[in-house]
């Protein structure tokens, strides 16, 4: 009898603990997948992490979250130094703001969590504007003009979006390309043929292996990869329209967003931004 009681007690305790643990861990657990969907309420629960321009100036630094394996926006060269278009641009903007940029590598899937828990001040890493991000973050003005294109293996002809249904397709999960495709009427007819990968590198490997025929990707990234590979892919004559990049801040930090917008404008007006764009992309594709 005593044994049964102690077993029951242990079980009760275990469940109580599990319940607590469950409640506590539900915040990170549920917002990890929320990286792909809007996280309502997420920003309100972390109002404590509000950051103003003054806070940044007192700190003397702006902590910028980025995926440091995202060429050509932000990546590491052979010496392990961070380089890329966004690195140069953020450095120029921070100079105008009078603070030091601190680049913090993060896991891209956890970017919303990094921001809402105050680990970083902004996400600045070739991040496209999507309706969900507009909801969950305070976004800066669009700064870069990009386009969602279709890249194919040689010999694959995609003359119109309707042709997509005849081929095996790939794109990156939680990417702006996927977002745009999902919003397109063609999505229903191609969704069974469209595989989502964790990274574009995996999409490219699968294309080279011949298991997929085409990928839907943003132009900046696609062209960079294609150049590295010696132009093994072709660009289809149809595209999914424009894709604009913005900087993401905490929903509450609108004042800091305005300050970054103003500093960005200074960089554009002075021609610094155009120089950086030409250095990385061969032409000025900044949003004016």
């Amino acid at each position: 009898m005593k044994k049964i009681i102690s077993v029951l007690l242990a079980a009760a305790m275990a469940f109580a603990l599990a319940a607590c643990g469950g409640a506590q861990s539900s915040a990170p657990a549920s917002s990890a997948p929320a990286a792909s969907s809007a996280a309502p309420g997420q920003s309100s629960s972390v109002a404590a992490y509000a950051t103003s321009l003054d806070d940044i100036k007192v700190k003397g630094e702006l902590v910028i979250g980025l995926d440091d394996t995202f060429a050509p926006m932000g990546f590491r060269d052979e010496n392990g130094d961070l380089v890329g278009f966004d690195i140069d641009l953020a450095t120029a903007v921070c100079e105008v703001l009078g603070v030091k940029p601190v680049f913090q590598p993060i896991d891209w899937d956890a970017k919303e969590l990094e921001l809402s828990t105050g680990k970083i001040d902004c996400i600045w890493n070739g991040m496209s504007i999507t309706p969900e991000r507009e909801q969950s973050m305070s976004l800066s003005n669009a700064y870069l003009n990009n386009k969602i294109i279709i890249m194919t293996n040689k010999g694959v002809t995609i003359a119109s979006k309707d042709d997509l249904a005849n081929y095996n397709l790939g794109t990156q999960a939680d990417s702006s390309a996927l977002e745009v495709v999902k919003g397109d009427p063609i999505y229903d007819s191609i969704k069974d043929k469209l595989t989502e990968y964790k990274t574009y590198d995996q999409v490219i490997m699968d294309m080279q292996a011949g298991r997929i025929d085409a990928m839907i990707v943003d132009e900046v990234l696609g062209q960079y990869k294609n150049t590295q590979l010696g132009n093994v892919f072709e660009v289809a004559p149809v595209d999914f329209g424009e894709d604009l990049y913005a900087i993401g801040l905490r929903k509450s930090d609108t004042e800091l967003t305005d300050a970054i917008n103003a500093a960005m404008k200074t960089c554009i007006d002075s021609g610094t931004a155009a120089e950086i764009s030409t250095k990385w992309f061969g032409s000025d594709i900044m949003v004016k």
């Binding site: 861990s25 990170p28 657990a29 917002s31 828990t117 105050g118």
Partner: peptide, 14 residues
């Protein structure tokens, strides 16, 4: 992986 998330992102809430 979940434990990592909990300790890094979850504990700051506490």
């Amino acid at each position: 992986m979940l434990q990592l998330f909990f300790i890094y992102y979850g504990l700051p809430f506490m």
